[in-house]
């Protein structure tokens, strides 16, 4: 293909997106588009399945049967989301095996929020409220993203996600209205999960590289800082309703801006965790790698059995 031909295809391609047309797996696409989407979708998928671990940690200790069932269902939903997203990613010509390999060797990232530990039951409430809340803000715009399979997976995910946030907030509400011990547990969880949740929106706009391209391809509608501000403005009143204090002494309503001013994020911590030095990075990876490697004999057995059945079937067919 000549450079001129490629340029022409690229122009048609960008025009299609500008016209709100969906790009489907078998459509021509620039290699950069394909690679960017593989990276973004796979990291999204990895986040879902690694995210099962901090919450799965409390399934056996959930304090009531109703909470146990809700938590099991939530974690299962996350596995399902991982599956929808891996499926969408595989349409771009990469296998599930390769994707897991990228995760296990650290080539691919996942949302660093999941590198924090869930040390009390209140953490489960805080995660549903704050982490799912932040995720929803990031995910809703993706329902209109340019790549068809990703957009449709996101519509499915968003439908299920709204219940997750409500469940988390309900846990926080119950704790806040409970005994002083329970309220203290809730406040402690908020103290530990607030800042990492803000970091979920990524570095400041000044430090972000891919923004322009992402906007064109509808992977992003607003900037990191805009989304972060949206999250804070939406969440602080929710904390007020709980009677809990957001752990930011600089948090203040700014009448002029119509938004909350907030304190400086510890970007050192952010980069340390991204680079692999958070409290649970190693543990999360070991768990995923072990599950995959220890499961190899199971997957092999299933394949071997299927092959034996196929062989037996074709022998019967031949004989008749």
């Amino acid at each position: 293909m000549s450079e001129k031909e490629i340029k022409n295809l690229e122009e048609i391609f960008e025009q299609r997106i500008a016209n709100d047309e969906k790009i489907e797996p078998k459509d021509w696409m620039p290699e950069k588009y394909r690679k960017t989407h593989i990276r973004q979708i796979s990291q999204h998928a990895h986040s879902e399945i690694v995210g099962m671990l901090p919450e799965g940690n409390w399934i056996t200790r959930a304090p009531s049967l109703r909470r146990k069932a809700a938590l099991l269902a939530k974690v299962q939903d996350e596995a399902g989301h991982g599956l929808y997203l891996y499926s969408a990613c595989e349409t771009l010509g990469i296998s599930r095996e390769e994707l897991y390999d990228q995760l296990h060797t650290g080539k691919a990232k996942y949302s660093s929020i999941f590198n924090y530990p869930t040390v009390t039951w209140a953490d489960i409430g805080a995660i549903g409220w704050l982490v799912d809340g932040a995720a929803i803000i990031n995910q809703v715009p993706l329902c209109n993203t340019s790549f068809g399979p990703y957009a449709r997976a996101m519509v499915r995910v968003c439908k299920e996600e709204s219940f997750h946030q409500r469940q988390g907030y309900e846990i926080m509400l119950t704790l806040s209205k409970g005994t002083p011990e329970q309220k203290a547990m809730a406040q402690d969880a908020l103290n530990r999960w607030w800042w990492p949740s803000l970091m979920m929106f990524g570095p400041t706009d000044a430090e972000s590289v891919h923004t322009e391209q992402s906007m064109k391809w509808k992977l992003k509608r607003k900037t990191n800082d805009e989304l972060r501000q949206q999250f804070i403005d939406q969440t602080v009143p929710q904390a007020d309703l709980l009677g809990l204090t957001v752990p930011d002494p600089d948090l203040k309503w700014n009448e002029e801006r119509g938004s909350y001013d907030f304190g400086e994020i510890d970007w050192d911590e952010f980069w340390q965790v991204v680079k692999g030095h958070g409290p649970c990075n190693k543990e999360r990876m070991n768990t995923r790698v072990s599950a995959w490697e220890n499961g190899a004999w199971v997957r092999d057995a299933a394949v071997a059995y299927a092959e034996k059945k196929e062989k037996a079937k074709s022998e019967v067919a031949q004989a008749s």
Partner: peptide, 19 residues
């Protein structure tokens, strides 16, 4: 052509619920 990647997903309706 074989399915080089995947056939298209069914389009789901746009209703999305927020909290």
């Amino acid at each position: 052509d074989k399915v080089y990647r995947h056939p298209t997903f069914y389009k789901l309706p746009d209703e999305v619920k927020h909290m």
